Amino acid sequence: MEIEILCTKLIKPCLPTPPHLQRYKLSFFDQISEKEHVPIVLFYANNNNFFNTSTINERIEQSLSKILTHVYPAAGRYDKDECSILCLDQGVSYTKAKVNCKLYNFLEKSRKDLSLAALFCPHVNKYIDKTNLMVSPIVTAQVTEFECGGLAVSLSFSHPAMDGFSDFKFLFELARVCKMETPIENIKFLSFNLGNIFPTRDISRLFKSTFDRVIEKDIIVKRFIVREAAMSRLRKKCIDEARGALDFQPSRIEIITAILWRAFIESTFQ
Rank of each mutant, 00 (worst) to 15 (best):
E2W: 05
C7M: 06
T8I: 02
T17S: 15
R23I: 13
F29W: 05
S33M: 13
S33R: 06
P39D: 09
I40H: 08
V41W: 12
L42H: 15
T55V: 14
R59T: 05
R59E: 06
E61W: 06
Y72D: 03
P73F: 09
A74W: 00
G76E: 14
R77E: 02
Y78D: 09
D81I: 13
I85W: 08
I85V: 12
Q90S: 09
G91Q: 15
V92L: 08
Y104G: 13
Y104C: 02
K109R: 00
L116T: 08
V124W: 00
T131M: 12
M134Y: 00
V135Y: 02
I138E: 10
V139F: 11
V139I: 14
V139P: 07
T140N: 13
V143G: 10
E145H: 03
E145Q: 12
G150Q: 07
D163E: 12
S166W: 07
E173A: 03
L174I: 14
E181Y: 01
T182L: 00
L190G: 07
F207V: 14
T210Q: 14
T210I: 14
V214P: 10
V214S: 12
I219A: 10
V226L: 01
R227Q: 12
R227F: 15
R233D: 05
K236Q: 13
K237T: 09
R243E: 01
D247T: 01
Q249V: 13
P250A: 07
W261S: 07
R262P: 00
R262W: 06
E266R: 09
Q270D: 14
